[in-house]
Amino acid sequence: MEAISTRRELLFFALRNKKMRVGISIFTFFVVLAIVGPHLTGYDPLDYVGPGYHPPCREFWLGTTTFGQDVFTQLVYGLRASFFVGLLGGGIATIIGLIVGFFAGYRGGMIDEILMMMTNVMLVIPTLALLIIIAAYLPYRGILIESVIIGLTAWPWTARAVRAQTLSLKTREFVDLARISGMNSIRIIAEEIAPNMMSYIFMVFILQFGGAILSAVGLDFIGLGPTRGISIGIMMQQAVLWNAIQLGMWWWAIPPGLAITLIVGSLYFMNTGLDEVFNPKLREM
């Protein structure tokens, strides 16, 4: 009963927190758009469906590109791609970061030294450069591959942060009690340490989610995105490539950038909001 009421209390504070409300609203709007959007339009994102250079109208809600592709259709499909990258890339980065961080922090000694050395090496290699090299070598690139690459390169800071958290949790006496109860390391990490970091892990995932989306946009923008299909980054690349701004095609240039800014912004809002929810000291009474 108490646990439920604590959870309820958290929910209460979460919904009362302004930053959380703003963040959740914006984020939900885009998620709904990504889910429902493709059903609202009858077009395919890459099809040439209408006249080029067409500003927004009843037929083409966000106008068309130079070649007559529907911008709204591209945007909603692009959003789907972005959320996919966020979920998969962010997810992979979070999971690797957690595993490395937990083991380095909990086991200590040599294991810690080796894992942290790997982490630090990954940390100093400029991620974007690495991404460019890997992406350039792949003849065929799909959104799946892109997500995996992003996930495999984004984990180091998560590993370091999780390690630090684990180190501090490790000194708590219930971990000692678990050890003298004969529990093995994996069980202690999974059952005693990780659950106590749930709020933190959740926040890490949100940040990784946003980070993965941004990385994907960056890759796509410099032309190393998926070789087929559409994404927000590709839309931005195309818009720049065909001088959308100079030609006054604001309907092509602005929506993808605005959407990404709002999504990533809402994630950061949620993140700081959650900080206040989970940390009673930051709560406004």
Binding site: R172, E173, F174, D176, L177, I180, E191
Partner: peptide, 29 residues
């Protein structure tokens, strides 16, 4: 050979019911 530590509140994982210390002892030993 077992131990009891200084801080009773930190000796329990706050997320689980106190029964867990007995359950673990049975499972492990």
């Amino acid at each position: 050979v077992q131990g009891v530590f200084q801080d009773p509140f930190s000796s329990y994982n706050p997320l689980y019911k106190v029964d867990r210390i007995f359950d673990i002892a049975r499972e492990e030993f």
